[in-house]
């Protein structure tokens, strides 16, 4: 019990200690690169709460959600088609693997050349880049569905809709979710990249502009905000995943305990 308490203190205490160290060590800092944490937090408050909250923070988040949402729905739907229609798979699979090899951020210049620097470009880049992880995971998930399950569905004369929502989707669920998680990370990276490449709005653009004009504290404030968003997005995703896949996580735990 005592040991457990000690571990708790260590786990919670280290981040606090590190932050405190950062605060104290940077307090007298005159370095151009590492301004005092106090100044960074002041700038954080001044910039993000509430001067640029609506114009930049909300804008970035809306692009992220929109692009990611489209990619997730389209990725799962396309994944189904590719996994279940053999001809579609043969035609599309090599193409998909080639496109997947392209670093997602490298697609941003192409979209800029096609549709300019606007919001559409950012949403389209996010959507296309985060489509692939979800789609590929869905294909893999459906192809590894237990053949017994498929047979049972056939014996019970399930309709296509029933098969899709009651057999394939739940059985492929764990893999689809891991694809969705990678997709979210990619979407977040492309959101930042699309803003850093020549845009004037959004958190990424504000951060890179601050860096280019040597407003170091503003840049640090942007980095902090992006870090917090990256962490929070993953946390929220994990909570949803745990909820939706509660049955799966529970069965895994039982299997491991046995």
């Amino acid at each position: 019990m005592n040991r457990k308490a000690l571990h708790w203190i260590l786990g919670a205490g280290t981040p606090v200690l590190l932050l405190a160290l950062w605060w104290i060590a940077s307090e007298q800092s005159t370095s151009a690169f590492f301004p005092p944490l106090r100044v960074i937090l002041e700038r954080f408050q001044a910039l993000w709460l509430f001067e640029h909250f609506q114009s930049d923070v909300l804008l970035s988040l809306r692009n992220l959600l929109l692009g990611y949402g489209v990619a997730s729905v389209a990725g799962i739907a396309l994944g189904f088609v590719i996994a279940l229609v053999p001809v579609a798979r043969q035609i599309l699979e090599p193409l998909i693997h080639f496109l997947r090899g392209i670093p997602p951020v490298a697609l941003v210049p192409i979209f800029i050349s096609l549709i300019g620097f606007g919001i559409e470009m950012r949403v389209a880049s996010i959507a296309l880049a985060s489509l692939f992880p979800t789609m590929i995971a869905t294909v893999d998930g459906i192809r590894s569905v237990d053949p017994g399950l498929k047979d049972v569905a056939r014996v019970y004369r399930f309709t296509t809709t029933e098969k899709t929502f009651r057999v394939y989707l739940p059985a492929a669920g764990p893999q689809i979710f891991s694809g969705l998680q990678v997709g979210l990370q990619v979407a977040f990276i492309v959101m930042i990249a699309s803003e850093m490449l020549g845009s004037s709005q959004g958190i990424g653009a504000m951060t890179i502009l601050a860096q280019q004009s040597f407003m170091t504290a503003d840049m640090w404030a942007g980095i902090l905000l992006l870090g917090v968003i990256g962490f929070a997005a993953n946390l929220i995703f994990d909570l949803i995943r745990r909820r939706v896949l509660a049955w799966y996580i529970g069965s895994r735990k039982l299997a491991r305990a046995a």
């Binding site: 571990h7 205490g13 280290t14 890179i208 990256g230 993953n234």
Partner: peptide, 28 residues
């Protein structure tokens, strides 16, 4: 063990943050 518990929270916090976030700092 103590090392593991001390770094757990820090690593879990940093893990989902992609390197592009610190790119402006490193370039600076």
């Amino acid at each position: 063990e103590p090392f593991r518990y001390a770094t757990l929270a820090v690593l879990e916090f940093l893990k989902p943050i992609p390197p592009i976030v610190i790119l402006p700092l490193i370039v600076l």
